[in-house]
Design a protein around this nucleic acid. Structure first.
Lengths: 185, 185
DNA sequence: ATGAGCATGTAACTGGTTACATGATTTA
DNA sequence: TAAATCATGTAACCAGTTACATGCTCAT
């Protein structure tokens, strides 16, 4: 069986939280889970069809006058079972590829100024992100204090926190390393 | 002009260090740069052709009796200019997608044991990586003390160090968070 | 009036990996 | 003698994004 494609399962996971339309999935994949996962419509709609044609989800159509129908998908018992099976499989490691590092690697004193500007932007970004994640963490601890999902959710936010901190430290250090130093004549 | 595809430039960057064959590129992209960039043969060979057909690199064939020809590519002046131009363009941000986080997010107390095993593996991994990066850093500082590329190279290794440290901290914390705690009855 | 949000979906493209074909030489 | 390394390359596949088509409603 060993599936490779994770998209349908990612969506199934979202459906396990609550029934959703393709549009909702898109939003969820751009907000909560969006910090470490994303899906585009080109993936979502075909995947939802697939899910319902294999019986892992069922579709219900909500009609409201004067606006487009909502195709709401709900996870089935079979779907939950498949999701659990998938969750138990070891995750494939995320291939890491950074154009920024690549460019820094090939850079030299001539390009240092431009690079420093990128790093400064990145630093600002990391600072903002850190704040966001800390905010999410606080809300989670307050509002979901006794939710059985709390630990799982905290784990993922904490990842964001550590990553943002690391990026911040690194950016500062990198800016320092690239600072032009007068050379001994 | 604004190119999107970075592969040919990544290769051009490698050629700027020294002339290489496709085979060499593969190795470089699995060693030094391999920590933040990778290329497969299916990308490399066509890209090298493209590079030489557009005059950014030139090919020379090395023959040695009893073994396959080496097609060695060397960057041209035009190639260096193009590379510099590309290096000055802002890098596209790397989309981040983690199946691990996704699975952790959808997990619960029932899956915590399996997840902890993954996190422990990850922790071991991060520890090993940290050692590797620190090793590279040391060698770099020793052997390339006065190389004009030193700063650029250090910057990228330091990224690895900070990332590995963050992963380590996070993994420990996550294991702790997932530890089953007896609930008040 | 303009644009954002709601809501469906698809076709074309892109960037990439995997698996294969081929075959000699060196090392364990 | 088996396996790794050297060395070229391609065809098939895969996962994913982008851009488009369509059209109503609500807030500014």
């Amino acid at each position: 069986m060993s599936r490779r494609r994770s998209t349908p399962f990612a969506i199934l996971g979202l459906l396990s939280l609550r029934p959703m339309s393709g549009y909702d999935v898109r939003k969820a994949a751009a907000e909560s889970v969006g910090h470490f996962w994303s899906e585009s419509y080109g993936q979502i709609y075909p995947a939802l069809r697939e899910l319902s044609s294999t019986g892992l989800a069922r579709r219900r159509i909500e009609r409201k006058a004067g606006r487009p129908d909502r195709h709401v998908y709900e996870i089935t018992a079979k779907g939950s079972a498949e999701l659990r099976r998938w969750l138990a499989e070891a995750p494939r490691p995320a291939p890491f590829r950074s154009e920024l590092l690549l460019k820094l690697f090939f850079g030299d004193t001539a390009t240092a100024a431009t690079e420093t500007a990128w790093l400064e932007a990145m630093l600002r970004d990391a600072v903002a992100q850190l704040e966001t994640f800390r905010g999410i963490e606080r809300r989670l601890r307050d509002e979901n204090a006794r939710d059985p999902h709390l630990a799982s959710w905290l784990v993922t936010v904490r990842f964001g926190v550590h990553r943002a901190e690391a990026n911040q430290r690194w950016a500062r250090e990198a800016i320092e390393l690239l600072r032009p130093r007068r050379r001994s004549r």
